[in-house]
Design a protein around this nucleic acid. Structure first.
Lengths: 210, 210
DNA sequence: TGGATATGTAATCAGTGATTACATGAGTTG
DNA sequence: CAACTCATGTAATCACTGATTACATATCCA
């Protein structure tokens, strides 16, 4: 008997602990909420000792920031996909499509959106990935509004910067209200897709010409 | 000398511990941030033992909820004051005044706004005061939009409910972005009052007729 | 083969929210 | 005024947390 019997207890070295930790973290956040997540639980779920995660992340914030980076990539991809199909189309329609994609993603991934938009759990400004991705999204909004104005599709009398800012605040506000469960008229388990669509339509109609 | 010399170490019973705890909590949140607040620190600042706060609040959440209730009273008062001066005036102007009052208050009291809008630190829906105050604010928005439409001051083609919802989301989004430090173009120490004013103006212009 | 290095464990630390048993003193009642 | 009651404080303690350290083990490369 060589001793290599049964599950083998696995290797002493995990082999792919970083990814395993991120997966475990996401799963635990989804189950219990991001505010009660503990590094120890993450370690336990990944089948590793309580101190192990600190070999890969200097602290809890860094771990959550890594989760946020993963999430931001997906959000950006989701928005890009919605915009990619309509190159050269009506910019107002693109703004609406972008807002819809953003909101749909937030509604379908409330956990990830919560992590991304949090500023106390993650070190947003300390992560170039997050800052760049965020800035890229902002630049898209700026460009679309510029195009809309150039093509005379923006309502008369609207300042370009202000309108773009208002659009970002509106979308962020809706998404944030959703993850924060702000509306008594919204039932817990049913995302207010219809309400969101209505408000989005109203907003888009407000800023567009004719 | 009767023995009542010097600080007297105070009475064994504090006398007004609840208020003292709330004050200490607000001060500590302002100094260090709401996410690192500990009950023990609050107790220490109030000059009392670590377990004392739990005589008055069943848990940390309840203490922070009490802070939120205090804050909500002030926010409501601030909004009411802004609306009270313009009874019967143009409803669109009232909507703008309400949004401005809300945002100014949030900018000037970021700590309190953060506590109010948090849904993980406080038990919002467990506090009738908070729920009622929030609902009251929402009803004011509904009423103003109804008036605006009745007087033909709302932009044509806008659904009443959707527009009101959009307005709430917009204001909340701006305030939340501020306390979350979401904008790279905003410097830390200077509230973006001008940007806020511009966006608010843009939004109001969007939803109004003519 | 062997030694440097990355990656895990075990033990431990201070700080946290919370609970319990006990101490104190304010207020009421005879 | 004395004694009883009870709200309100303290002290000790619990389980848990993020984090650090010393040590163990596997992997990789000369």
């Amino acid at each position: 008997m060589t001793g290599e019997s049964l599950p083998h207890k696995s290797t002493y070295h995990h082999g792919n602990l970083v990814e395993a930790l991120l997966e475990a973290a996401v799963a635990l956040i989804e189950e219990k909420g991001v505010d009660v997540l503990s590094v120890r639980e993450v370690a336990k779920r990944a089948g590793v000792s309580p101190g192990a995660p600190f070999r890969h992340f200097p602290n809890k914030t860094a771990l959550l920031t890594a989760v946020a980076e993963q999430a931001m990539v997906r959000l950006s991809a989701s928005v890009s996909a919605a915009l990619g199909e309509r190159d050269g189309a009506d910019p107002i329609g693109s703004i609406e499509a972008m807002g819809r994609a953003y909101l749909h993603w937030a509604f379908e991934n409330p956990t990830h959106f919560q992590v991304i938009s949090s500023r106390s759990l993650i070190d947003f400004h300390g992560s170039p990935k997050l800052v760049e991705a965020n800035e890229a999204l902002r630049q898209v909004v700026v460009r679309l509004f510029r195009e809309a104005q150039a093509r005379g599709r923006l309502r008369a009398g609207l300042d370009l910067e202000d309108a773009g800012f208002a659009a970002r605040a509106f979308v962020y506000g809706v998404a944030r209200m959703w993850v924060d469960r702000h509306f008594p008229e919204w039932k817990i388990e049913k995302p207010p897709l219809s309400a969101m669509e209505g408000a989005l339509t109203a907003f888009i109609r407000s800023i567009s010409a004719d």
